[in-house]
Design a protein around this nucleic acid. Sequence first.
DNA 1: GCCGTTTTCGGCCCGACTGTTTTCAGTCG
Length: 583
Amino acid sequence: MKNQQIAKIFSEIAELLELKGENMFRIRAYQRAAQNLDGLSKDVSGLSREELESIPGIGKDLAAKIREYLETGAIAKHEELKKEIPEGVLELLSIPGLGPKKAKMLHEKIKVKSIVELETAIRQGKLSGLPGIQKKTVDNILQGIELLKRGTERRLLGRVLPLAEDMVRRMKDGAPVGRIEVAGSIRRWKETVKDIDILTTSKKPEKVMDVFVKLPNVSRVLAHGETKSSVVTEDGIQVDLRVVEEESFGAALQYFTGSKQHNIKLREMAVRAGLKINEYGVFTEPGGKRKGGREEEDVYKALKLPYIPPELREDTGEIEAALEGKLPDLVTPDEIKGDLHVHTRWSDGSHDLGTIVEAARNKGYQYIAITDHTKGLGVAHGLDEKRLAEEMRVIDDANAKLTGFRILKGTEIDIRSDGRLDLPDSAIAALDIVVASIHSGFKQTQEQITKRILSAIRNPFVSVIAHPTGRLIGEREAYAIDMDTVLKEAAKYGVAMEINANPLRLDLNDYHIKMALGYGVPLVISTDTHVTTQFDFMAYGVSVARRGWVEKKDVLNALPVELLMKRLNACRANKAKRVKAAS
DNA sequence: GCCGTTTTCGGCCCGACTGTTTTCAGTCG
């Protein structure tokens, strides 16, 4: 798909125009178009001129530019701008606190063309005497450069969420706060986040702010105001705190949860309905009469919309669905009845069966599937045919002593680099569930990888494909997989795709999940637990599922155990029939 | 540059904090 490439060029054009000081609405038009292209599920290369222009934010001119790129591989306007403004000047915009106006001025007055050059210029004192720049501004730029060097990349939700919750706890303990909640992309459960947004109410805002900027893990205070403060923690994460009145808490929570695009669309709707929405509430316009804002629902109600859960607020069709009364009834954590991907000490897990079962029962589950690795994974003490059979006998014994809980007999079978499974069919035929996944040959071509997964899907006993892209967020790229082909095949055979709940994996991701639902592929949400505490990863898995518009009916492990077994057996029967028909 | 059941022209989401200013521009979210 060329969408992302074109989106990138559009946003670069926007930045270049900013540096030129062009009309800001024109700049916004490019930014908006870039965002919409980035989130578009259809490939633009197949679209006609009319279809292009029907994309929100794309008009005659930008449609022509998209076609220009598709035909020539470049956009003339973009190339011209790049000639005018050296590439390094763009990089100045990435310095926090330094925007287009100052970057432009620095480039024009002292010919700075990169961050390195800017640093040198500062050390040589070349910035003194420039209009609007005094010592404080110079200090801020230097600190901004430091911040940038320490890494401003997006961080794993699984790392940041616990930090955010910890800060909320400390604020509750040490400051006179009323309602307090984490907002921003954390609340939308985005897989990676840039900063932490916390929102609270208080009768003594100044006191709250004083406590906040002095929290023990704060290393720098960026802003310290009456209602808004920003700090950077020792880990280099920015945390913003806002204090609002009780009557505004809902509106503020809605506002600071975002996404930006979602909110802009709501506000545009509000303007058309003669209303004004800001972080303090919903107001009539003109007149300014308050129509609500204490609760988040007030905002949606004012626009005659049902409540839209945070995970859906990405402006990817949720507002349109809400208008039509077609919002999904999203799956919830307490609808999950069991975990279908769990390891024990038999392979690379940390606990014996008893400990794992006890932890699962404490989570309130009705069942788990034990899915230890197979022999191909030597490092994980993978099981051969004989040990797998032994493990299954142990599980049978354990089941005989359990009431109200069932251990499903399973395995996470390795899909070898040649595409064959790691154990013969005879070894896995009697299992309740077979989860297949790739652990080697990540560098293979898309054709090879896809072929391996397809052959696993067609195996008569495989019922789930685990962590289907193999990515480790921020550490390892997904392998080259033709997801479209894989999902179609999975739908055909009734094989489920896993949403791996480990915050480092989270694949399928929200985008692929939507694709899977479109093809009618069954889903499972599993934690891939190796240590009992990892059962708690389920919250991440369910949230990604929700971001992918998943309902309870789409999730196999939201079924009670009898129905789950029925589905798994039906999948096998279906495969057997297909194999017979083919022969 | 986009967009329209007020408009094909004239709007375009909205507010807080900082620093350098004597009333506001720049930046951010």
